[in-house]
Write a protein that binds this DNA or RNA. Sequence first.
DNA 1: AGCACGATTGCGGGTTTCCGCACATGGGGT
DNA 2: ACCCCATGTGCGGAAACCCGCAATCGTGCT
Lengths: 241, 241
Amino acid sequence: MKVLIVEDDHLHRSYLNEQVRAALPECVAVIEATDGIEAERLAREHSAAHIVMDLQMTKRNGIEAARTIWREKPDRRILFWSNYSDEAYVRGISRIVPNGAAYGYVLKSAADERLKLALRSIFIENQCVIDNEVRGMQQRSVTPNTGLTEAEYEILMDIALGMTDRSIAQRRHLSLRSVQNRLTQIYSKLDIYQVTGRHRDDGTFNLRARAVTEAMLRKLLNCGALERAEVDLKTWLSEKG
Amino acid sequence: MKVLIVEDDHLHRSYLNEQVRAALPECVAVIEATDGIEAERLAREHSAAHIVMDLQMTKRNGIEAARTIWREKPDRRILFWSNYSDEAYVRGISRIVPNGAAYGYVLKSAADERLKLALRSIFIENQCVIDNEVRGMQQRSVTPNTGLTEAEYEILMDIALGMTDRSIAQRRHLSLRSVQNRLTQIYSKLDIYQVTGRHRDDGTFNLRARAVTEAMLRKLLNCGALERAEVDLKTWLSEKG
DNA sequence: AGCACGATTGCGGGTTTCCGCACATGGGGT
DNA sequence: ACCCCATGTGCGGAAACCCGCAATCGTGCT
């Protein structure tokens, strides 16, 4: 068994190395990468290795790297090891994990023991391990009247990218009016109307811009998610011609 | 001498503790805080302690904490220890550092030696130490035709918060038209017009939303900056009545 | 089939955004 | 005093945004 560690922080990397060796004595080699690009390369070279990966790296973030890795080999086992359980991360991962693939999500604040357990569960038992805190988030994000549907989330990303209603309609194959309907739903779910506490819309906020801010503050969106969405948008733009 | 360490990551915190003790044998006590709120409280209790602080913490980020700490005692010495040298951080700090206060900015990727040197320079010599990479950023951000002026940056924050032109005008004591002028300047400095590569503005982008995205992607803005701006906005809204 | 309920779409119109044009203001320079 | 240039302002208009209203479509249930 081989393990590929992807983590840009030096301290965390050596800690991970240590933990992997301790938890998996059957592991014969530990490879290290310090950013997403290197990770993709090394994953190709060591196609049998299991992967432990940080989200949030400078050059190419963990989710992007995971996406290309899984695209090339959907049965790779990946353990995500992250500081936060932001909805942006959770949604980002759940939309790229291949059908039936084994993966894990452990927070960096977790105890050594939890990390070790997760390492063994995923890499040996081939079983998913999702941190409780992350699971809770996942639940909350699908409660009706509050959580955004996948379709709404998609549109939210589009306005976060700065697209006009018209181009969103074109991209998502909807009419202009439908896009605007989705927008008003997003506005109401994010409580954009009563941000000031007073009666609705006293004209201090531009709704679409405010929705993006609100989503950021709630960790529904973050910079990494924007970067990913941006590359998707670029490819769409280029194939649209 | 006492030192207060503010850092939410366990590994980094113990590393910092170790380095502080090694670099400053004259230090008689090391206090630790794991988030910005705790930091503000402990800083009040230990009013003589120097501070080493991470930016980017969950509960209250480093810049917010530093702001309140400096507001209460402008001659505190603070060493910021951060992963990145994003323009958002640099601008955020430079607008809160009191006149003549000693502070430092060291990247986490720096060698042990550099950190030790910075610790001694600031806490003993009372001398500013800014990482070269950060200095470079600072320079780039003031080059004309590219870097945003302070006034423009302010307006950029306002649209990132989702404010309308009108409310920005009111807040910044400008006419509607002046706000819009500033906006077009921001758009041109951020190259919003030729994002698609083709001729200007084919209608795929909403300029104000796109400017925010672009700023995020360029690390001119980040979530922490938004949070800070948001509390400022809230106080303005409430005192406006 | 018949019905219900939600999502989609078109229409109309009030508001906001974006910006070209023109004019006032307000310091440096010579 | 004079000019120059950068900034701030007003006007007007094309486009985009936001949304109430009403008709249509689609899917699932009985």
